[in-house]
Design a binder for these strands. Structure first.
Lengths: 211, 211
DNA sequence: TAGATTGTTAATCGATTAACAATC
DNA sequence: TAGATTGTTAATCGATTAACAATC
């Protein structure tokens, strides 16, 4: 339906707006102007108004934005109310840490199982989930309508496993391996979390005294 | 010494160049043109040449770039050969996963200790490190010339702890808590790893079929 | 030498900022 | 109503791409 092109620069800011607006709700704030929000976030008021107006006019002249309804609009834009099902593939230290601690439900996602060589179960913030042998992953994806795969595997296994998951029906990948996945042909979105890139950016900024 | 302004857009691409160039070395490639690298990385040759030329002329007309010397230049630019010392503050599941698995040495960083309520020790890829009680962190930073603090704490403790660390002499923060740290006044670089922002970007792109 | 590919300048494109009429 | 602040258009700024002379 939405046809208008939205730049990646704008998209990358949306989750940050969502996070700030949620913090304000927690603090009991119920109204904010683009000017005040800009100051909090280190942006310009103009940019915030431009960004939000890519998706609709959520504010009110002379008043600003109602924080709760802005939160709801942002959740809607980001697709956080769709209850997508996710699995985690590779349950080493990183996979285990994510499984145990991360609040998937705050992004509208339900983590329903893990896959690894061994099986067992892991407690999450929302109760335990089962860990199944990796061999069963394809049929599990199909029979449970799993949309998201979280890949926390050793680098060497990343790309072949990713392809396999996509062939089984996965619609989006959250990639924690240190390599870029080359899945252009498949046409599904991938979000990379490259720890080493992030740490090296910090290193650069420390060298150059960039703040 | 380097005075020329380098945009954040360029900086963010440098670690990715470094990663690709390292991969090529592992594959035994020793020469690459901007055109070939651009195809691998999904960029334009022009952009790669512009980016690299912010820092110097590392290529050779008619030949391209020598992969090994490009790797060395990139390491130098990113400050990966300075052997910075780091500590990790908060050794829950996420801190433990990073400590156990992450190759800090590949970014020229030495993880020398952890801090938490309890003490003990954790094995890393380069041998065990000690975990000390958080109370000792200030004096430890001072007496060991620690430059980087990795913060893997609950959100509530993030900002007060960060301020404390900076006052003790920390020169850069790698932040894994879900909140932005507001340390403008202190003038030190912070690199945020916001898992939820990343996952919500994936969610958005899945909704909009962005690939 | 001829071919290839860089470094770099100029042209284009896109994103951010400024301005202001609309309106709550 | 007067004041505040949006939504939106226009102006500016910066980043990307194209082009090409330099040169290996």
């Amino acid at each position: 339906m939405e046809k208008k092109y939205i730049s990646q620069a704008v998209i990358k800011r949306m989750p940050r707006y969502y996070r700030y607006v949620n913090e304000m709700i927690d603090m009991g704030i119920n109204r904010i102007s683009s000017k005040a929000l800009a100051e909090k976030m280190g942006l310009t008021a103009s940019q915030i108004r431009q960004d939000l107006n890519c998706f609709g006019g959520f504010g009110q002249q002379g008043y600003g934005y109602n924080v709760e309804s802005l939160r709801d609009e942002l959740a809607q834009i980001l697709g956080l109310n769709k209850d997508k099902k996710a699995i985690i593939v590779g349950v080493g230290n990183m996979g285990r840490a994510l499984t145990k601690n991360f609040h998937f439900e705050r992004s509208g996602i339900e983590l329903i199982a893990g896959f690894d060589l061994d099986f067992g179960s892991i407690d999450t913030v929302n109760g335990p989930i089962a860990i199944f042998p990796i061999d069963n992953v394809d049929s599990y994806i199909e029979s449970n309508d799993v949309e998201i795969a979280i890949i926390t595997l050793p680098k060497e296994l990343a790309s072949t496993t990713a392809e396999r998951l996509v062939r089984a029906g996965i619609k989006g990948i959250w990639n924690f391996t240190s390599s870029d996945l080359h899945l252009q042909g498949y046409g599904i979105p991938i979000e990379n979390v490259h720890f080493s890139d992030s740490l090296r950016t910090l290193s650069y900024n420390m060298e150059k005294n960039n703040v």
